[in-house]
Design a protein around this nucleic acid. Structure first.
Ligand SMILES: [Mn+2]
Ligand SMILES: [Mn+2]
Ligand SMILES: [Zn+2]
Ligand SMILES: [Zn+2]
Lengths: 143, 143
DNA sequence: TATTAAAATAGTAACAGTTACTATTAATGG
DNA sequence: CCATTAATAGTAACTGTTACTATTTTAATA
């Protein structure tokens, strides 16, 4: 395969990432890996995430506007991002293979891929939002 | 409307942005506006782009992985980004209104919006790529 | 196993894009 | 005009990321 050496740092980074259903940032993963390798450096995490993504073992998610996130699931799938707390979740949504073809016709680019990303409010933030609303209502009613 | 004062800086920033078909970064627009207001500061450009986007007069494009770009066209439309040179173009592609509904069913988020972004190679970079290929072929044949 | 060359590491500095701060200037409403 | 207050220029600070470098570790070979 890739001529990547088997270092404990690289192994643990990969292990911890694939465990997670969240899509951590480099720094979030750094904090997790640090529990097993306290002296690991943040640069090592960045470098290995880059290398692992290049070799196809993980996925780099360039989600819009925010910092990079990483994904241990490599198959094609879409994501939804919470606009309140920033968390990113997988969506059980069929992959739209025909989009690239359609886009080729809509412009004069040679289309390679597409990225479909939803924005919304996650269940946790949604319930907080509802709590807030009812609190406000209560305030208004009871003056 | 928005309680934004009508400053020459803000006016020129908006004027120049809507003129462009490209989707400039804050810095690119700064360089353009500087030709008309040489003493304008980069911070002013950033601040106003943010305010104009908030008030819905322009669009902020959080394109994946790279710096923010801005768009004078506010209607819903999709973009394609060249992976070689980074340029971003509009696509004449129908807006997929049904996607949000589908995504709502595919997870437990309250879906607000979606972003569909294509990656490809622009005509300019594509022709360079072909030049390169034929050069290599020529080398191989005549080498 | 011992030797060696290359790759990877920790620690740190540098960098790029963006935002925050502050004293000064300018737009707006009366 | 004047007073209020938003906006500005200039600059510093911040954040996420990448680059650098001396040292350590891996893995191939003898
Ligand atoms: Mn995922
Ligand atoms: Mn556009
Ligand atoms: Zn949330
Ligand atoms: Zn290009």
């Amino acid at each position: 395969m890739g001529n990547l050496r088997n270092t404990s740092q690289r192994r643990v980074i990969l292990e911890e990432l694939v465990k997670l259903k969240t899509h951590p940032t480099a720094n979030e993963l750094y904090e997790i890996v640090r529990k097993r390798i306290p002296k690991i450096s943040l640069g090592t995490v960045y470098r290995n995430l880059e290398l692992l993504a290049e070799s196809g073992l993980i996925q780099k998610l360039d989600t819009a506007g925010t910092q990079k996130r990483f994904d241990g699931m490599v198959g094609d799938h879409y994501h939804v991002r919470c606009v309140k707390c920033g968390r990113v979740d997988d969506l059980d949504f069929p992959f739209l293979n025909s989009l690239n073809k359609s886009a080729s016709l809509a412009g004069n680019y040679k289309i390679i891929s597409h990225r479909l990303e939803f924005e919304g409010i996650c269940p946790e933030c949604r319930s907080q939002e509802l709590d807030g609303k009812s609190y406000v209502d209560h305030e208004r009613i009871t003056g």
